Simulated scan of single mutants.
Amino acid sequence: MGFSKKVSSLKESATLQAAAKAKALKDQGVKVLNLSIGEPDFSTPKSIQNAAIKAIDNGASSFYTPATGLPELKQAIIDRTREDYGVTYQMNEVFVGSGAKFVLYALFQTLLNPGDEVIIPTPYWVSYSAQVELADGTPVFVETTQDNHYRVTVEELEQARTLKTQAIILNSPSNPTGSIYTAEELKKIGEWAASNNIYIIADDIYAKLVYNGNVFTSIVSLSDEIKQQTIVVNGVSKTYSMTGWRIGYALCQPEIVSQVSKVMSQSTGNPAAVSQYAAIEALSGSQAIVEEMRQTFETRLNDIFPIVQEIPGVRVEKPQGAFYLYLDIKETLDMCGYDNVTNWVNDLLEEAHVAVVTGEAFGTSHHVRMSYATDMDTLTQAIRQINEFIDSKRI
Rank of each mutant, 00 (worst) to 15 (best):
V308P: 07
K187L: 13
K393I: 10
L283P: 04
F95A: 11
K54L: 14
H367C: 12
S261I: 03
D57Y: 03
E117C: 03
N234W: 10
I48L: 03
L157T: 02
I289R: 09
V154G: 09
I311R: 06
S286R: 07
A14T: 05
M264Q: 09
E93K: 01
A278F: 06
A373E: 10
E83C: 01
Q159G: 03
F141E: 14
T44W: 11
K31N: 12
L16H: 06
G213M: 08
I226S: 08
E191D: 15
H353T: 02
K187H: 06
T374N: 08
T374D: 12
K164Y: 12
M242A: 10
P66W: 09
E291C: 03
G363Q: 03
S98A: 12
A352D: 04
L112C: 03
G269S: 00
Q295H: 15
T243Y: 11
R384E: 13
D79L: 02
T374L: 11
L16F: 15
V236Q: 08
K164S: 14
L170A: 06
S43D: 15
T144C: 13
Y211R: 04
E225V: 07
E292V: 15
W192C: 04
N214M: 07
V210C: 09
T145S: 15
I231C: 08
N34I: 05
E317P: 00
I201V: 15
S4V: 00
L186T: 00
K330D: 07
A355C: 13
A24E: 15
